[in-house]
Design a protein around this nucleic acid. Sequence first.
DNA 1: CATAAAAAGGATAAAAATATCTTTTAATCT
DNA 2: AGATTAAAAGATATTTTTATCCTTTTTATG
Lengths: 143, 143
Amino acid sequence: MLSNSSKYAIKGVIYLALNSNEDHKVMVREIYEVIHVPEAYLAKLLQELSRHHVISSVRGPKGGFYLSQEDQKRTLMDIVKVIDGEKKVNSCVMGVNTCDRSNPCVLHKLVGSNKARFISVLEHTTILDLIESKQEFEAFFPF
Amino acid sequence: MLSNSSKYAIKGVIYLALNSNEDHKVMVREIYEVIHVPEAYLAKLLQELSRHHVISSVRGPKGGFYLSQEDQKRTLMDIVKVIDGEKKVNSCVMGVNTCDRSNPCVLHKLVGSNKARFISVLEHTTILDLIESKQEFEAFFPF
DNA sequence: CATAAAAAGGATAAAAATATCTTTTAATCT
DNA sequence: AGATTAAAAGATATTTTTATCCTTTTTATG
C-alpha cells in the first residue's frame, strides 16, 4: 500500500515539521541519524519532495531542508503521490483493471472499503494535523 | 499491503473455489487463461499453497488443483500468510520496529486502525464466505 | 574572490519481487 | 510394464525497488 520510500519520506517530513522552519534549516545528516533511513537515499527522497514543492530547501552553507508555513498544510497524500505516484496508490486492491471506486469488484467491497478509508486519511491529514499532537509523538519518535 | 503475489494467489483460489472440487480438478493452464496471471508464476504460487495445505493438488493425468471441503474453510489470511509471510502483513504501517498493535505509534492511530480492520477482514473471510455471494462474483469475474 | 557547505543530479550497485524455463516425480491409461 | 500426462521442484532470468557513490551546482561567509 505504502512503499518503504513513502514511509521514509513521511518520517523525514515529520522530522522537519518538528525541528525546522524558515530560519532553522536542517541537513540530511541530522535527520537520518534520528529516523534511521540511509543518508543518501533520504537525500534523494527529500530532493524529490523539494522539487515538487512539498517541502523547501536551500543550498549552500546554512542551507538545508525545512517546512514553510505553506508546506505544513500539505497532506500525507501529497508526499505519497510524489514518491509512489498516484496510480499506484489508487489502483484496485486486487489489481483488477476494470475496477475502480465507482465500479468496485467484489473483493473491493470486502477489502477495498478499508483502502478507501486509508486513502481518505492520507488525503485529509496534513503535516500540521500530525504535529498538533506533538506530545504523543515524542513518546514514539525513535522511529 | 498485499503483494501482487498474494493477489494472484487469491484470484487463483477463488477460481478454484468456483470451478473445482475433489472430483473435478483443474489445471494451471485453465486458470491462468481466465484470471490473467502468468502461467508459470501462478503454478509456483499454487504449489506453495498446496505444500502448506491451503489448497489441494494431485499430480499426473486427471490431476490438477482443487479445493477440498476443508480447504474452503480457509481464510484469505491463510493464503496471504503463505505467500507474503506473516511478518510482512502484520508489521507497522510505518515500519516502526518497536511498534505493534499493543503499542501503536501515532501514525498507527491514524492509518493503522484501517490496517487493523483490513487484517481483520482477511482473518475472518473464508473462501466459502466469498463464493456464497457467487452471483455478484460472476459480474466481476474477468479479473 | 576564494572557500567551504549543502543540495541537486547522474550513474551505478544491490536486493527483493516477479517471472520463466527445465528437470524430476507421480499418477493414470493403455 | 511402458507411454503419457500433469504437477512439483529447482535453476535461472528479468524487472522493480531500494540504496550508494561521485560529481556538479548553488550560495553564504570570511
